[in-house]
Design a protein around this nucleic acid. Structure first.
Lengths: 220, 220
DNA sequence: GTTGAAATTAGTACGAA
DNA sequence: TTCGTACTAATTTCAAC
């Protein structure tokens, strides 16, 4: 069997446990880098690119998959050609007691490509792909609106997808090899950059959770 | 050489040419469906699953890649394990005349995973992955703020990524069969709620393009 | 962790339905 | 077009180093 039986992936969340089952070194990151750009390389070619032996590559490759660092392999598809050229973002305000229902309903909407719980004015952002604009409208008004957990929605359309990188890796920024993955988020003291003097901070605005959530209870 | 020399992808965007070079039939969609869920299947296994001969599978597979319907193959990575557990959305207001500069700057930010031009209150949405919250702050205040094209930003953090499907296909909606795509945790009482007819349209809100958005497309 | 050889599988070409 | 088969080249596995 040559086939990589992919695990389900797309999972339960960024807020999950941090428990580390595999210590990632620079070689692991290099492997991830290669596989991200070309998920169909043979392990032999992978070993050659990373600069390790084949057996080592097989071991690490399987370890990464078994440990869940690699969730699955997938094909990136041109949605326009596939018939789903319309992309929309739907920002949802959820009744706080009904999150489980909201999640359950979401799982039954195959046209939803992405959903994240966010801080800020809204509670969640949903990304959908549709054949035309009318379908988006139908989706929002007929399906989302009928979910009791959904208190309100706000929809914007995506005019152009400027950038879509497969999956960002730490090595994208830290080009220095030999350093592994930062095990723990550094305390603000060490990593806090000298945020300088000429920064136009005035035009920046961070939206915390509390701000939007407070108004959420009162609003309809 | 078995390796699929992936094209660059992630490029100019969804607004590209619409010209259809390949008529996609049901078999093509089935192939895409299989490859989306497991980008590393051998063509032999692919042929077996789709129900066509190996030779046919090779032909169609290569046609889909050559025609650009399949942009590339990639590995889905657990960002938490890889050391980038913090996700943030940055909504950017862009000075309309300076859109090309904005794009150019964006291309030089490898930590940006996704960027889309949207209708609505803001002009663009950027998704970034970072090791910690401080890095997001640094990114926004030091890098984005210094781009002249950026007029203002608004940042929200992602608390949980509920759903992330590889890539939605048209066939996802047509199949209500049991083994469809939606195999995500829908544990609780999760059956069909009565999809009533009364649409609570009042709580819906569509946000159209902001003023002067027409100049955006020309400037690109 | 690395190399090398054996067994298996993948990729290609060609003829036939 | 699609299928089936044979041929060639590559990969994976497993062994010893």
């Amino acid at each position: 069997m040559t086939e990589t039986s992919s695990n389900s992936g797309s999972g339960g969340g960024a807020t999950g446990r941090i428990g580390i089952g595999l210590e990632l070194d620079a070689t692991h990151l290099k492997i991830l880098e290669v596989l991200r750009d070309n998920g169909r390389v043979s392990v032999s070619a992978l070993a050659e690119r990373v600069g390790i032996s084949r057996a080592n590559a097989y071991t690490r490759f399987e370890a990464l998959r078994a440990d869940g660092v690699i969730r699955r392999f997938t094909a990136e598809i041109d949605h326009q050609r596939a018939g789903l050229g319309i992309v929309a973002l739907i920002f949802v305000t959820v009744r706080q007691q009904m999150w489980p229902q909201f999640r359950a309903q979401l799982a039954q909407m195959p046209e939803v490509e992405y959903c994240a719980i966010t801080t800020g004015q809204h509670d969640a952002m949903i990304q959908v792909r549709m054949a035309d604009v009318a379908e988006v409208h139908a989706m929002v008004t007929e399906r989302l609106a009928n979910i009791p957990a959904v208190k309100a929605t706000e929809t914007v359309f995506i005019l152009d997808e400027v950038l879509r990188r497969p999956y960002v890796l730490p090595s994208d920024r830290e080009r220095d090899r030999g350093r592994g993955v930062p095990r723990r988020p550094a305390p603000s003291a060490s990593s806090e950059p000298e945020q300088g003097q000429g920064l136009p901070l005035g035009k920046m605005r961070f939206v915390g959770a509390a701000e939007g959530r407070a108004a959420l209870r009162d609003a309809t």
